[in-house]
């Protein structure tokens, strides 16, 4: 999976979880930039991304990711 493909698919998951069809995320997007991205939604988001890409994040990754770019890097390294 290429990086742009990952970002495109991630954007679909974000739109679904945040229920916002106009949401556009970039590699630099952080929790501050998205309305409703709190610790509760973060958990839902992680679960949905794991299902969508059929991967599992580690505990360290879940608590350590700084922005969407880091998320995409982990997916890129792991998704088949």
């Amino acid at each position: 999976m290429t990086r742009p493909e990952i970002m495109k698919k991630l954007n679909r998951v974000f739109r679904d979880v945040f229920d916002d069809d106009t949401l556009k995320i970039t590699e630099k997007t952080t929790a501050k930039d998205v309305d409703g991205w709190d610790s509760l939604t973060h958990i839902t988001l992680i679960g949905e991304i794991e299902d969508a890409f059929r991967i599992k994040f580690t505990m360290k990754e879940v608590t350590g990711m700084k922005n969407v770019g880091e998320m995409a890097s982990i997916i890129e390294a792991r998704a088949k």
């Binding site: 610790s39 958990i43 992680i46 679960g47 949905e48 299902d51 505990m59």
Partner: peptide
């Protein structure tokens, strides 16, 4: 139960 979600957030059931 997603083990890390219980460790991080005391959430004993996964979203699935």
């Amino acid at each position: 139960c997603d083990a890390k979600m219980y460790m991080i957030a005391k959430m004993p059931m996964s979203t699935a």
